[in-house]
């Protein structure tokens, strides 16, 4: 095993080194066949430690393809993705992914406790500490005594909380989320948005969230990466100068929020 030239640690350096670094990423499907299709043309951006970055784009912009490349589930055709300095070969241990479809991503044959235990078992956490950590992380996402239930016995919002708890269980450095709140009702969506903001500030975790919802992106993000239609390029990277903590009522009625929203809307619908 060769070690990467740059070994980032939280103790050394200036701390400005990006957690995630995407360079000239390109992804084509069916390369060399008549139905070759370019999904991502050229995407470059960095995510700093502790930052909350949202990725938006028109539908069919290859957002999910991009997320799969960022997580290491899919190898890019060219370009590079580096996580904590090392090029991605597979899904890194310090990175967690939350999928949109919680009803399929949570194993229906395992109870909530056993679902959350999976990443802890992989990390080799002993049984006793595992049980403590499961209770702790379920509490952190606002779930009470549901550990013995099966995921499908819970409401959609609660299931996505379990999925978030599972993603956080082994204390990863970064959370990658693919439209995580697209399958729940509006009220639950607000609750989960606030939950993820709280989790992020409590745990000081880096979050990259892919969404088609511009309001959600502005509400959550420090910066928004706007993709063009397929094949994707980075249209613009928009900083969000809204204060924190954010509040569904106050933040969403600010003048800056409305301006950002309008600007992003123009970018996304320009095609």
């Amino acid at each position: 095993m060769s070690h990467p030239a740059v070994t980032p640690t939280s103790h050394s350096g200036t701390g400005t080194e990006p957690v995630l670094s995407v360079r000239a990423l390109q992804k084509a499907y069916n390369v060399g066949k008549p139905n070759e299709r370019l999904a991502i043309a050229d995407v470059t951006f960095d995510v700093a430690k502790g930052e909350f970055v949202c990725v938006v784009g028109p539908s069919g912009a290859g957002k999910t393809t991009l997320l799969r490349c960022l997580s290491g589930l899919l190898a890019p055709t060219s370009g590079e993705v580096r996580f904590e300095g090392a090029p991605l070969q597979e899904v890194p241990a310090r990175l967690s992914v939350v999928f949109q479809d919680y009803s399929r991503s949570l194993m229906p044959w395992l109870t909530v406790n056993r679902n959350v235990a999976l990443p802890l078992k992989v990390a080799g956490v002993a049984k006793r500490q595992r049980e403590d950590r499961i209770a702790e992380v379920l509490h952190a996402v606002g779930l009470g005594d549901v550990g013995r239930n099966y995921p499908w016995q819970l409401s959609g919002g609660m299931q996505q909380r379990v999925a978030i708890a599972r993603a956080l269980a082994h204390q990863p450095d970064m959370l990658l989320m693919d439209e995580p709140f697209a399958s729940v009702d509006a009220q639950t969506r607000f609750d989960l948005e606030d939950l993820i903001l709280k989790v992020r500030s409590d745990l000081d975790i880096t979050v990259v969230l892919v969404t088609h919802d511009i309001d959600e992106a502005v509400y959550l993000a420090d910066r928004v990466v706007v993709l063009s239609g397929a094949p994707s390029r980075v249209e613009e990277i928009v900083p969000v100068p809204l204060g924190r903590p954010r509040n569904q009522l106050v933040t969403r009625s600010e003048e800056t929020f409305a301006q950002l929203r309008r600007h992003l809307m123009e970018l996304v619908t320009a095609h």
């Binding site: 997580s71 991503s105 194993m107």
Partner: peptide
């Protein structure tokens, strides 16, 4: 496919 992706993300391998 979602379960397969989830297994890869959770780094489940082998017998587990």
């Amino acid at each position: 496919p979602v379960v397969r992706d989830t297994a890869a993300v959770l780094r489940l391998r082998g017998l587990r």
